[in-house]
Design a protein around this nucleic acid. Structure first.
Lengths: 339, 339
DNA sequence: TTGTATGCGTTATCAG
DNA sequence: CTGATAACGCATACAA
């Protein structure tokens, strides 16, 4: 009852072709490639030879369909334009690739709703696991994860509700850098914030807590703008801050981009840094060490976060409980000339 | 003859479940989702309702297997740590996503051999098309493309051999910035190069051509290092250059990272820029406008390259010949204080 | 250690 | 416009 055979595109070399060429059955080819130890050396060699000769490339779709494992991990990050997440991606890749997993990278543009759409879209690939940035996500997000029984690891921050996470305390980091500015004798320390995502707000919390502990709280020293951060924005915010509060003697910028812009503006205006105004950033981008004066900032273990998160996810995907549910990788103050 | 039903992971809601819930056949569900115009409105609504109610997510693997189209595009870039390629990725994504395609991103780390491995690995996903960085690739690369009948678009540079490409002339750009330095009255113009990939070497060619045309060739003014570029390396190369050739009066750095490092070093050493030494970079990164003095550089249409390359690829994948095989998007000199 | 039969979830083909 | 049926390429379960 065979109809007209379908015309298919593609190289079209399949496992059966290899099997025929090697004089074995298809399943032996499958095993020779995926579980070599189950195939006798002579047969295995013949198969591998045939694979090479024919230029056979296994089909991931067919494999995923048959095995219900896609060998794929979905990584959701808020931005591709930020070195922070690139370093994290590099760490993830370094761990996942040797384990045979491939990354699907989704860029949410710092938008929870878009992140949800991305999850929906990438769910079509049936990823075996998920690496997420931050702890809070749009509403049906966690429900979707449960429905699809997707193991997930949360990166960059620390949760206390049993979710597996790898990161550091954004709040502690914000507090620590603020205390450093206090220790330098600064008393009217301002905060410059852009983007205003979850992590920036936690740094702000830390900043507030440190000032409160010193009895120096002053809401009039906070400048917040939800638009994406840039050096231009840092320069503009510096202008605004000095105009409104000329008595301000230090600024903690929520990231290095902002800080570098502010620093450049100070140079242009002839404002003495750190004497008249101390500046601190966050993340320790490459440029931070190379601007003049060099920028005090907080170094974050981004690459390590990616690596450890990927390792934890590998365990989860294998059904093994992770060693630690909450992995605190800490941070480091980089004290330079700007403070 | 049914055996024990397989235990499957995943939400496990399939098209058949939706079909049952909507009281139609599976194929009608497929059509309601993929070719709505072929299904009567009432049925279509019932189906879509059932899809929502059940939280059905189609399986890309099954679809790809059945249709021989993965709706996936492989993007091969040399680095994720470089803003240049991020902007390009953003442009690509902006075009491909609305067209229903997803990107697979492969990072070759500037290594042709690794790039070839990546192609092999990602070929398992049977991508419908390929976006490549640069023109030259490891040996069996193009053969593989042909064997798998993969449409490809080459980004960042311009070919003359019939390959579809979107970019600009790296050589012309290198020559243009060199001529600018000449016009500023500089006579002993050096070249600082790192990474030494294809595009850097073409910029070097342009630099050499411009100097030769002015009768000012001087091989002793070239400093080349194959390791990855960084600001640190820019600073180190500046030291070396001034030690070996104190008469050098301008430097064209093959990218902005190098230039910014060199610039910072000049600041530290008290070298007057541009009077004693003029500096120029390449790419026009955000920082270039914000260092002191601001950096003269070459702005490249990275995002537009991504967009146009993606558009061209969409045409190729639809079997339509591209409007232009060779799309020159040009470049722009950003003349700032450092020259 | 190797092979046989079967099914994964979807779409192409062709018939109503 | 809708449906039945047969692939798509591979891996699981089981038998030999």
């Amino acid at each position: 009852m065979s109809r007209k055979p379908r015309v298919r595109s593609g190289g079209g070399i399949t496992m059966h072709d290899v099997a025929k060429a090697a004089g074995v059955s298809a399943i032996t080819v499958s095993r020779a490639l995926n579980q070599p130890q189950l195939v006798s050396p002579p047969l295995r060699d013949k198969v591998l030879q045939a694979v090479d000769a024919l230029g056979y490339v296994p089909s991931r779709s067919a494999s995923a369909l048959a095995s219900a494992r896609s060998r794929t991990v979905l990584v959701l990050i808020p931005s591709l334009g930020n070195t922070v997440f690139l370093d994290t991606l590099a760490g993830i890749e370094a761990v996942l690739a040797p384990a045979g997993y491939q990354m699907l990278i989704g860029n949410s543009h710092y938008d929870a709703e878009q992140e949800l759409q991305l999850l929906r879209a990438y769910l079509q690939h049936r990823p075996d696991g998920l690496l997420l940035t931050g702890l809070s996500h749009a509403e049906p997000f966690d429900a979707l994860l449960r429905q699809h029984a997707l193991p997930a690891v949360y990166m960059m921050d620390l949760a206390d509700d049993g979710r597996c996470c790898v990161g550091f305390s954004q709040e502690d980091a914000g507090a620590a850098i603020t205390r450093h500015l206090l220790a330098r004798g600064k008393r009217r320390i301002g905060f410059l914030g852009a983007q205003l995502d979850e992590r920036v707000m936690k740094r702000l919390d830390g900043y507030r807590a440190a000032l409160a502990a010193a009895g120096l709280s002053d809401p009039g020293l906070e400048w917040l703008d939800p638009s994406p951060s840039s050096m231009q924005m840092g320069a503009d915010m510096l202008d605004a801050a000095l105009r409104q509060r000329p008595d301000c003697d230090a600024l903690f910028c929520c990231n290095d981009d902002l800080a570098i812009g502010a620093l450049a503006r100070c140079q242009q205006l002839g404002i003495a840094v750190p004497e008249r105004l101390a500046l601190a950033g966050f993340n320790d981008l490459q440029s931070a060490a190379w601007c003049t004066p060099s920028l005090t900032t907080v170094a974050t273990p981004r690459r390590a976060i990616g690596e450890q998160a990927a390792r934890a996810l590998l365990r989860l995907m294998d059904g093994v409980p992770p060693e630690t549910l909450r992995m605190d990788l800490g941070f480091e103050l980089m004290l330079r000339r700007s403070s």
